[in-house]
Simulated assay, not measured.
Amino acid sequence: MAAHERPGCLLLADADPVSREQRGRELAQLDYHVWAASSLGEAFAIITAEQPHFAILDYKLSDGSGVSLIPRLITADPAARIVVLSCCATFQGAVTALRMGATDFLARPAETAEIDAILRKLSDECRLSGAADSSLEAVTRRHAQEILRIMTDDICATARVLGIDARTLRKLLART
Rank of each mutant, 00 (worst) to 15 (best):
D63C: 07
V161E: 10
Q145C: 03
A28N: 06
V84Q: 09
A138S: 15
R23I: 10
L12A: 04
A166M: 02
T96S: 15
G24C: 13
Q29A: 14
A117Y: 03
K171N: 01
F54H: 15
G8D: 10
D154H: 03
F91A: 06
G8F: 12
L122K: 15
D116F: 09
D31K: 11
H143P: 01
R170W: 06
L11P: 08
T152L: 01
H4P: 04
L69Q: 11
Q51K: 15
D58H: 05
D16E: 12
H4L: 13
I150K: 04
C88K: 11
A107R: 15
E111F: 06
I56K: 03
R127T: 08
D31C: 02
L69F: 02
T112G: 01
P52I: 04
L172I: 14
S19A: 14
M151T: 09
C87Y: 08
Q92G: 08
E26W: 06
L169V: 01
A76H: 12
Q92W: 13
R120P: 00
I56V: 15
P7A: 13
A28M: 05
D16Y: 12
M1S: 15
L61N: 08
R170D: 07
E137W: 10
S38Q: 05
C87P: 04
V161Y: 11
S19C: 04
S129N: 10
R99D: 10
R6P: 00
K60A: 14
C88N: 12
I74E: 01
A102L: 10
A49F: 00
A13C: 08
L106Q: 14
E42W: 00
T176E: 14
Q29H: 13
I155C: 00
